[in-house]
Amino acid sequence: MTPEKNNKTIDTILLIIFVAFLLGINIFLFSGKYLHFDTQGVGIVVAAFLTLAMYSFLYKDNPLFKIAEHIFVGIGMGMGVVLTWLQVIKPLLYKPLIRHAIFDNTPGTPDYILIVPMILGIFMFARLYGKTSWLSRWSFAFIVGGGAGIGIPVIINSLILKQLEPSLQPIFVDWVVTWQSINILLILVGTISVLIYFFFSLPHKGTIGGISRIGIWFLMISFGATFGYTVMGRMSLIIQRIQFLLTDWLHIIK
């Protein structure tokens, strides 16, 4: 038997054991009245299956993980369709415009100007047909141009001016050095040195090189802090999932 075939056999055996284990545990949980056969109970079993299927990736990429992955994409896609209809198309296009065209006795007057975004939206589908694909550019131009136009003043206001304001505070008040004045100075030095580090129009040698080195130190501390936060965030998620398995599903922890 080739090693590849051998691995496949081991994987199949593990898959069967996993499914049998899952079935056995759930039969025990339902028959022992630990879980009730209702929407909540079935929901917990489904969530537990998905959690374990996802963690099976720690062993290696396997069919169980792929099934979970495709379930997620399928459900996500379906929810996308439903939500797009319920939250976008129905209230913004169907009710104010399309319904008037379909049913004669619809109250109110149709909002004809909505024909423009409807056509631009339909133009998006022109991308699927070679000869008319250029029509989709009109829709993209509207979205991209609008996004750029809205973005410029908003980001200048919120990300430059609002950020500059606390960066340009007086360092010393009445020439008294306090812990706060040291911090303000450090933030100013840090911001400028990091900006110089990202300024590639000058060679990073001599004074510029020295300042950019300080910038790297600030960046490293910031990256370390972000890393620490991310690790702890993920750890709390792992704890939450294990708690779910042991408490809500298996009822080992009361």
């Binding site: 973005g151 980001i155 840090g190 900006l195 910031s222 990256f223």
Partner: peptide, 23 residues
């Protein structure tokens, strides 16, 4: 302090880049 300084500088960089790209 150090995290704010670095994040602020990164934000400035991203913002200037976004403005240039939007223009």
């Amino acid at each position: 302090v150090p995290n704010t300084a670095a994040k602020r500088a990164i934000t400035f960089g991203i913002t200037l880049g976004s403005i240039a790209f939007s223009l």
